[in-house]
Every structure is written in C-alpha cells, then in structure tokens.
C-alpha cells in the first residue's frame, strides 16, 4: 500500500497555524529568545511528523524528523492534541512517561507555556478555514478528537 500524500495535510495545518497566529499575534511572544527555534513534533502513533517554527510561523509535514532541529517532542496524537488545547498538563505527561523531550529543554518549556496561555480551541481554528462548510468541519473534527482523546487513557486528568 502506498502511503498517503502529505501535501494536503500540510496545506490545512499550515493554514491553521497561520490563522492562529493572525488571531493571536502575541501568541509566540512568550518564546522570547527561542522565537526562531525549530521544533520537531512526532506523534508516536502516526507515520509522519511535523516541523514547526514560530517566527515566521511555518509548519511542514514530514515522513521523519530531520537532523538539526532545536528540540524534539514526541507523544501520542491524543496527548499532543490535548496539550495543544491545555487539556493536559505537560509536566504530568513527563512524570507518566507519555511525553518525551529531547534537545533544547528551555525552548520546549517556553513553547509549552506560550501554547498553554493561548487557550487554543482547535475545532474553532480548523472550522474557520472551511468557510460555509465550517460547521460540519467542526463537528467532524470534534467527533474525531473525541475518539482520539477518549482512547488515550487520560480521561481522569483531562476532566
């Protein structure tokens, strides 16, 4: 079986990142000296990964993380989504060994704090990309998110 092409996913996610940045222009101020850091994000249950930069906001979908990144963060997709939305505590995930951080720990901490303060709602951000189809897109995302996070075994903490 051939792997799915990544470019449509990259298009959507890069659009979400741009939108988040437009709506919260100060979101990455908390990165301070790490605003130009390159972060590798690896969902351990998916066959691809993300490279994220804050300034300028840029997101690439890759089959595997390249060398030369400032930091790498890996966890299940469910935990990464929940972290993005502030539904889980990053330190708690480190304690339970469900989150692995390598590289520049200071940059990762700054990123975590910036995101936690941003109070992101991914369903809203994603649905706003789809114009008149926003409402069904939102419902589809919320259903998918519910399935993914529901299977993560972190319900106790995320309640």
């Amino acid at each position: 079986m051939r792997p799915l092409p990544l470019s449509p996913l990259q298009l959507v996610l890069a659009g979400v990142l741009q939108r988040i940045h437009r709506r919260n222009p100060a979101i990455f101020d908390r990165l301070g000296d790490h605003a130009r850091a390159r972060f590798g994000i690896k969902p351990i249950d998916l066959p691809f990964a993300f490279v994220v930069e804050a300034r300028p906001p840029r997101l690439s979908v890759v089959r595997s993380l390249p060398h030369g990144l400032d930091a790498r963060i890996s966890a299940s997709l469910a935990n990464l989504l929940a972290l993005l939305e502030g539904r889980l505590d990053g330190d708690a995930l480190m304690f339970s060994r469900e989150l692995v951080v390598e590289g520049d720990v200071e940059a990762v901490l700054a990123l975590r704090n910036a995101i936690d303060d941003a109070q992101l709602d991914l369903a809203t951000e994603l649905s706003s990309l789809f114009g008149p189809l926003g409402a069904p897109a939102r419902r589809a995302f919320e259903a998918a998110r519910g399935r993914v996070i529901g299977s993560s075994g972190q319900g106790e903490q995320s309640r």
Partner: peptide, 8 residues
C-alpha cells in the same frame, strides 16, 4: 504547571 493542573 499548565492550566489543566491548576483547574483540576
């Protein structure tokens, strides 16, 4: 700690 910790 994050918001999830504070809230819970």
């Amino acid at each position: 700690r994050g918001r999830a910790y504070v809230e819970s």
